[in-house]
């Protein structure tokens, strides 16, 4: 009896021991970790709008943004290429959650500064967070002379404030969407009929076409009866092209300004009538402080 069983027994046992060796790692319980979702956008702007990505901690991002004239300005103006407004900016990541930035726009000689804070960060694993929530606040200072110098003018009349709550999610490698209820405040408005507070909702997203190329689009819906006639909602569509340390954003938009108060509340171009600016943002990052080197 044993004689018959022996080969089977040893076969079963040896099979068993082979199995036991097959999966040594499964013996170790791996602690589940929380993984933050990264790279929802290539850079901290979708096009004009602030994206849900911040500049990384210790990294400085130098921005060179251009908007040429309207495409429909005709061949005499080289279809807008003869005119350009520019914003030069510097962004810096103070921490994993907080970034700040400053910039100067040639349009109305405006200086702006902003801060963006990640309140909630989309994550998977141990602690799952389905979306990211950010607070974004910016202030712009218009430095051109006051239109009416005879009146008593205050410094505060030069200021414009914008507050935004950005809620977004990277749905997949290929798709990221965000929505941002926004308030723009004008300290001084041209006429008594103009509103000081402009409420809007900004939507934006990207579709990643290849590893280094993405299609971005954004639209800002300003609630009705707030803007003076002639102002329109801002729309923009373009591509992100990433090459190592640079991100090139090439796009078409009806907004001339590259700061919130301008593109949200002062867009005059009619996109579908050809009032379209070709524009680009160039982003170049520099690592100022390295935190990761000695991670242990």
């Amino acid at each position: 009896m044993i004689r018959i069983l022996l080969p089977f027994l040893s076969l079963i046992l040896s099979f068993h021991s082979v199995l036991a060796q097959e999966d040594l790692l499964s013996l170790i319980d791996e602690e589940e970790t929380t993984e933050l979702v990264t790279a929802s956008f290539k850079t901290n702007r979708i096009i004009n709008l602030a994206s849900l990505e911040n500049t990384a901690k210790g990294v400085m991002d130098f921005k060179i943004n251009h908007r040429f004239g309207f495409l429909n300005s005709g061949p005499g103006q080289a279809f807008g290429l003869d005119n350009a407004t520019i914003r030069l900016g510097l962004d810096y990541g103070l921490s994993d959650r907080l970034m700040i930035g400053i910039g100067r726009s040639s349009f109305e000689k405006t200086i702006d500064g902003y801060a963006k804070l990640k309140l909630l960060r989309q994550s998977t694993g141990k602690r799952t967070m389905p979306f990211s929530v950010l607070l974004h606040a910016s202030t712009a200072i218009r430095t051109i002379p006051f239109q009416n110098p005879d009146r008593e003018n205050f410094f505060s009349s030069r200021l414009f404030h914008t507050g935004q709550i950005i809620i977004g999610r990277k749905f997949s490698e290929g798709l990221t969407l965000q929505i941002a209820p926004t308030l723009v405040h004008f300290n001084l408005v041209p006429t008594a009929e103009d509103k000081h507070d402009i409420y809007s909702v900004a939507g934006g997203g990207r579709v990643k076409l290849t590893k280094r190329l993405a299609l971005n689009a954004e639209y800002i819906y300003v609630f009705p009866d707030q803007l003076a006639p002639g102002y329109r909602n801002s729309v923009a569509i373009g591509f992100d092209i990433e090459t190592g340390g640079h991100v090139f954003q090439l796009h078409f938009t009806n907004s001339t300004s590259m700061i919130e108060k301008g593109f949200i509340a002062e867009t005059t171009g009619d996109f579908f009538a050809g009032d379209i600016h070709f524009g680009f943002n160039v982003s170049r990052v520099f690592t100022i402080k390295s935190y990761n080197k000695k991670a242990k």
């Binding site: 990264t38 990384a56 340390g245």
Partner: peptide, 24 residues
């Protein structure tokens, strides 16, 4: 018998952008 396993996302780089490109 010996086995190893390492999470790719747990590699940390000197530059944040390198880490992003490495993963992405």
């Amino acid at each position: 018998a010996i086995e190893w396993s390492a999470l790719i996302k747990a590699f940390s780089f000197e530059k944040a952008l390198m880490q992003e490109h490495f993963n992405e």
